[in-house]
Simulated scan of single mutants.
Amino acid sequence: MRIDIFQDMVCPWCRIGKTNLYRALEMRGGEPPELRWRAFMLDPSVPEEGLPFMRTMQQKYGEQFSHEGMLGRVTEAGRSVGLTFDFRKVEYMPNTRLSHRMTAIAPDEFKAPLVDAIHRAYFEEGRNIGDRAVLMRIAEETGLDANDLADRLDRGEGEAEIEEDFEMAKRIGITGVPFFIIGRKFGLSGAQPPEAFLNVFRRLEEQA
């Protein structure tokens, strides 16, 4: 079974959604699926140097975007599935293109741990994941060869892969993430609970 996961590194619901997917896969057991991490950028207009986090998001969402409002609800949703979100440490709204390229060229066995590490660095530690040096340190912490990754990024590797993801999302009609395509047949949108994934797994088994 293949699962395509469209997500962005600055999307807290993507972090919650993939955690629920992991939990559903543990409950299902059996042979592990093939996970394909697909790039999606919630705001491609963010410059490479990033933008101030709170000011940018309050301009977009208004007064409801606060630690007591929208961020508080996200924090509580994360806590319910065992995740920590500390938005008081988040200073930047980064451009996520480089982090997607890095994930695209990482060996398959490192992709999921790398995405997890980038999410943790941003949402728990407030690190600027739009900064190349920060991403290289995260890669090293995940067990990757940062020098090799840097050389490959300098050669433009990963660009074609993420552009293919962007085109695929556009063709399918994906306008928000997380979005999961399971078994190349069923789509799930949003941070669905584990039961939603299990229902899809059962439907695929019944069809098989």
Rank of each mutant, 00 (worst) to 15 (best):
D151T: 12
G187P: 09
M9V: 10
R152D: 03
K185Q: 15
T96I: 02
V134G: 06
A139Q: 03
Y122G: 09
L25F: 02
K170G: 15
E68W: 04
R38S: 13
S189I: 09
G78F: 07
L153W: 00
N199D: 14
M54W: 08
R55H: 11
V74R: 09
P178T: 09
R152Y: 00
R2L: 09
S189Y: 04
G187V: 08
R73A: 14
D154M: 00
P52Y: 01
D8G: 10
I181K: 05
F180M: 08
F123T: 10
K18F: 04
N20D: 10
G183F: 04
M93E: 12
K185P: 04
R23I: 02
R127F: 02
E159P: 00
P44K: 03
I3N: 02
A208H: 07
G143F: 09
A106G: 11
L25V: 08
A24Y: 08
V46T: 13
M168D: 14
I118A: 09
W37D: 06
T96D: 04
E167H: 07
E163A: 12
R137T: 14
D145W: 05
D148Y: 01
E68N: 10
T103E: 08
S66L: 07
N95D: 07
R28P: 05
M168W: 11
C14N: 07
R171A: 15
V81W: 03
V90S: 09
F40L: 04
D131L: 02
A169K: 08
E109Q: 14
R55E: 15
D151Q: 14
R73L: 11
S45T: 15
E48F: 04
R79G: 12
N147R: 15
L71Y: 01
V90W: 02
P32R: 05
E48W: 01
T142E: 05
I16T: 08
R132T: 02
F87G: 09
A112R: 12
N199W: 02
R132C: 00
G183K: 04
F197H: 07
S99G: 15
R55Q: 15
R184V: 01
K89G: 05
S66D: 07
E157G: 02
G158L: 06
N128L: 01
I3C: 03
N128Q: 06
E159I: 10
M1K: 08
M136D: 01
P193I: 03
R171K: 14
M93C: 09
E206L: 13
G69K: 09
G29M: 10
M57F: 12
L135W: 01
F186I: 15
F166L: 14
I16H: 07
N95W: 00
V90P: 08
N20K: 06
T103M: 13
S66K: 01
A169S: 13
T84G: 00
I182W: 01
N128K: 03
A104I: 05
G78W: 05
K170D: 13
L204W: 05
M1W: 02
A121I: 08
P194E: 09
E161G: 03
G173D: 11
R152E: 02
S45E: 13
R79P: 08
G173C: 10
W37S: 06
Q64C: 05
D4H: 12
M168E: 15
D43W: 05
I181L: 15
P52W: 01
